[in-house]
Design a protein around this nucleic acid. Structure first.
Lengths: 337, 337
DNA sequence: ATCCGTCTTGTTACCGGTCACATGCACCAG
DNA sequence: CTGGTGCATGTGACCGGTAACAAGACGGAT
């Protein structure tokens, strides 16, 4: 048995130093079987002395569990993907699991390529993130590992999907505006083809209906997720319904455009018109003048919950269906007292 | 030899179907050794028929090469880290390498924990990203795998670091302002403790000096990376040097603040005062009124080059030293004709 | 003294590939 | 007819762990 200088320390080295066999060393280090406490301790201190770290690959090979999962993004790493990735990474690393990053770029060929790569690497599961809530086709059928969809739904209802609760978000935003005494409320948001936009709009209408009210300035509701649309739509709304006293914007960017437009129209925020955004994109919401109240969709929580459900599925207890994650109100000056 | 139904296909299954031994099948599939072309073909078609995909773990174990690398971010996944990650992922996946994602969160305990995890997983190399150019202590000494620092320098000059070329960026921005005929140029940027801010400022001064000019409005140069500072500093500059005809801003956010301030002061952009930003953060630069000219620091290229250098180091040809990546001018309306 | 059970440790097969080497066969020259 | 050469393929070791089983030591009961 030659002395291997410099190379990595193997369990055989630890066993040799402790004067036991590799099998015994393995048991000692993993706290399994029954060993004399003294022996266990001797192995432990030998391992520590040598700085032994088990080779995760060698461990994974016979067990079939690699303690890795793949994270496939559909749209690169956009604004919404980031916090989800962070949350997922956080939730998984807490379970001692490492994350393979794959940038799908909205290209299903790339996606399938990554899928194969991940399976080759024996991942224990896969998280697929999207940038829109809208449903997407499942990654593949009959995969040997569980898949969880985060921020996007799988069109197969038997799959597990975790998405932000847009209906709830629309509700709390609108309720907040009512709470501060506004009654002539307009809504400006993104394209109607986005499920998220439709859900927020309809839940806003519901809340108002329960209070015996309706949305005002209906001429400009669905448009784009841009500042420019925020400015433009605000101008239209204020012309068609000059007594509007609050605008619920579908994104912070739109709200930012709205503040600019209102300032140019000589309306004060929040005194004349209260404003609430959506997304809590700090760079827009917190630095706007005045700072924007908004709905934080809790995206990192979406990622964390997706991770938790994936871990659960890996442990044999899948959680099928669409799971919604509620957001929360962030109140700043634009609806403040 | 039992028939394994449903389980993954192993090379032994392929070999059995082709009527050869596993060794022969391995050679056939990897195009090695000398085999009868007919045999090779028979094995290939057997593999295809069974949908055989080699187990990457089993492959990595004896070879010592896992074809994976770790990506450790120091500050989560901030604005600047994202494009670098994208570039790195892109550059590595081209080399058939998968990327482990680790969110260091500016916490050296976490960082060291991830480092150990990555080494346990037998990564072939590590990329460390930062959010500032400024030097940071090396990840660790005497690691068994190469490390490349991206967007941040290692304080050990023998390490390989890839950073954006701030001096070049400052130069092209300033030169552009001179080219469009401006001579009374101010500079508003972030905190002086940022190396990037200092480099851009001093290269701007150099370019002006060569033209026999100096920066104007020196009372407000270093401040913060915020819109608020952009507004505030612009007001100060325009008061102290009312004939200022261009402002080079250290970030697009600052430039955005500057456009607002100038509008409120009744100065037209670019007619009275030309504006150029830095970063090409589309969401600010492209949607500002007017759209901002800016310097694109080419961060995804920084990531890609870091990946290339890492691959080279893995192949035994390290590229020590600090490598700078030039940015490029993006001309929009704020300096346009 | 023998047998059994328990506690502790060693031995060995195995995961799924790859690679060095052994084997066997055909062909050719002497 | 024999021996060497070269090509095609099989065999077995190995990577670094884990786990099932084997084996040995010791003490107590009969």
């Amino acid at each position: 048995m030659s002395v291997r200088r410099g190379g990595p320390v193997r369990i055989a080295d630890v066993a040799a130093l402790a004067g036991v066999s590799t099998g015994t060393a393995s048991k000692a280090l993993n706290g399994l079987g029954q060993l004399r406490p003294e022996t266990r301790e001797r192995v432990r201190s030998a391992a520590e002395q040598l700085g032994f770290r088990p080779n995760a690959l060698a461990r994974a090979l016979p067990s079939g569990r690699s303690y890795t999962v793949g994270l496939i993004t559909t749209d690169s790493f956009g604004r919404f993907t980031i916090p989800i990735m962070m949350g997922a990474e956080d939730g998984l690393s807490a379970g001692q699991i490492s994350v393979f990053l794959c940038d799908g770029r909205e290209d299903s060929i790339r996606e399938q390529h990554y899928l194969r790569t991940l399976l080759d690497r024996q991942v224990d599961g896969i998280i697929v993130t999207g940038r829109r809530r809208d449903a997407r086709p499942p990654l593949a059928e009959g995969l040997p590992v569980p898949v969880v969809y985060a921020m996007t739904e799988s069109s197969n209802p038997a799959d597990c999907s975790v998405v932000p609760d847009d209906a709830h978000g629309g509700r709390i935003a609108t309720t907040h505006l009512l709470d501060i005494g506004r009654t002539r409320i307009a809504h400006i948001t993104g394209p109607e083809r986005f499920l998220g936009a439709r859900l927020r709009a309809s839940s806003a209408e519901e809340v108002l209906a329960q209070a015996g009210l309706r949305l005002v300035g209906t001429g400009a509701r669905f448009g784009e997720w841009s500042e420019a649309w925020g400015r433009q739509a605000t101008a239209i709304v204020m012309r068609s319904a000059p007594d509007t006293d609050a605008i619920f914007c579908g994104s912070d960017q739109i709200a930012r455009g709205a503040t600019d437009a209102l300032r140019e129209l000589g309306r004060r925020v929040p005194d004349d018109v209260a404003l609430i955004g959506y997304d809590n994109w700090e760079i827009f919401a917190a630095t706007s003048r005045p700072a924007l109240s908004t709905v934080d969709p809790n995206l990192s929580e979406v990622g964390r919950i997706a991770a938790r459900h994936l871990l659960s599925a890996i442990d044999g207890a899948p959680v099928p269906g669409v799971h919604t994650v509620p957001g929360m109100l962030v109140i700043r000056a634009s609806t403040g007292s």
